[in-house]
Nucleic acid binder design. Structure first.
Length: 376
RNA sequence: GUGGUCGUAGCUCAGUCGGUUAGAGCGUCUGAUUGUGGUUCAGAAGGUCGCGGGUUCGAGCCCCGUUCUCCACC
């Protein structure tokens, strides 16, 4: 994997770049649709490529390990072969799932034991076997196994947690470096900064992560309960230290506004379940603001879903029809909303990239944020 | 026609011995959702307790009348 910075914004830390992997090029800043179980929910790859113009998607180690399981993925020849997506894939390590399924987790130095949400069976993830599983899945970018500290953690816990994540990183990297990709194309390993909401811990973590000198770095443990202003502050603290010539990935973020704020602070990659999950619940993100398609006010609004939208679903269907589909619990509602939201997210980062290239990103961003904050 | 039975929120129904402002589930409406368990959670609106009268300090509940549902028998 290589990363090349093409343009930098004169008035902020925003930059436009190009990541090259064996499965193709990713133009940054980028949003990566989440495809947890080898599928971006409710969206075909045809739409993902042609309409949404996704350049890379995510998979999840925890979920794929439990189902279909590594044996099937290995026999399929890896995730790309299994699901038919021939562009880049990034897999999250499962660290977040261990955090979010907290009632069943037990953390120890060796790793994390947890119970499957599917059948209750017991499993152990370690920094080493998570590398092993991600080798089998065959993602282009694989993530370190970390503990995602909740935004409400106290300093003592956050420090201990961060230090363990660092030790896990050492072990994971060692294992990664002495193993080979299985399918003939290269894989790269991103370490993850932790440190909760404490600037000194964030600095310490960023320095440790930077010193590993990997091809890209991630910022984890944000948008997990802390105020947004704190999140922005942590991004600033961390990005002062993370190398400028490597891509920076802000994990799990976020709202369209969060993403613009992240880009301005020098983040290159984002992923989030919001456009798909909230879309399935009737929330549409548009350049003019947020719409809840279940609201009664759309009942007889026969105008296009999004008159400024770039996806074919935006013009092909009316708000009244989409509301009807949601109220009737029709599958088509989930498809239309997911396609619209992902197309919008990709449009947004694409516009950000254009404005970084033309040098007026900050000005454009200011106006955009005003529009995005509206409730329609 | 006679005897019995039934009527409580949009729907299906609880409602104790007669006791504070009549409840639930579903539906409807509104909001939340940030490295996805096709969810989940939070809140709101919604009532002439079929109708009329009576007893009682007090009636969804007891009494009388009436109407309606369903059943059985003429």
């Amino acid at each position: 994997m290589t990363f090349e910075i093409q343009n930098t914004d004169p008035n902020s830390n925003a930059r436009a770049g190009k990541i090259t992997t064996d499965h193709g090029v990713i133009e940054t800043p980028i949003f990566m649709p989440v495809g947890t179980v080898a599928s971006v929910k409710a969206v075909h790859f045809h739409e993902l490529k042609e309409d949404i113009k996704a350049q890379i998607i995510l998979g999840n180690t925890y979920h794929l390990y439990l189902r279909p399981g590594v044996d099937i993925l290995e026999r399929a020849g890896g995730l790309h072969k299994f699901n038919g997506w021939d562009k880049p894939i990034l897999t999250d390590s499962g660290g977040y799932q261990v955090f979010s399924l907290s009632e069943n987790r037990k953390l120890k130095e060796e790793g994390a034991t947890f119970r499957s949400h599917i059948d209750g069976s017991k499993h152990l993830f370690t920094p080493e076997n998570v590398v092993e599983i991600q080798r089998i899945i065959g993602a282009d970018i694989i993530m370190a196994f970390d503990e995602c500290t909740p935004g409400t953690a106290d300093y003592t816990y956050a420090k201990k947690s961060m230090e363990m994540t660092h030790r896990w990183l050492d072990r994971g990297l060692q294992h990664f470096d002495k193993t080979e990709p299985k399918y003939g194309y290269s894989q790269t390993y991103f370490p993850i900064v932790q440190g909760c909401i404490y600037p000194d811990l964030r600095r310490q973590s960023a320095e440790f992560i930077a010193s590993q000198n990997r091809e890209g770095n991630a910022i984890g443990g944000l948008a997990v309960g802390e105020p947004v202003e704190t999140m922005y502050e942590m991004i600033e603290v961390v990005n002062e230290i993370l190398p400028k010539d490597k891509p920076r990935y802000l994990m799990g973020v976020g709202t369209p506004i969060n993403i613009l704020e992240g880009i301005e602070r020098g983040v290159d990659m984002f992923d989030c379940v919001m456009p798909t999950r909230n879309g399935r619940n009737g929330m549409l993100f548009t350049s003019q603001g947020i719409m809840n398609m279940k609201n009664e006010k759309w009942k007889d609004d026969f105008s296009p879903v999004d008159e400024f939208g770039t996806s074919y679903v935006d013009q092909a269907y009316s708000k009244a029809y989409l509301r009807h589909l949601f109220i009737s619990k029709e599958y088509l509602a989930l498809q239309i909303a997911s396609i619209h939201n992902l197309a919008f997210y990709l449009w947004l980062v694409g516009e950000a990239r254009k404005h970084i290239q033309t040098g007026d990103f900050s000005h454009w961003k200011k106006g955009m944020i005003e529009q995005l904050g509206r409730r329609l």
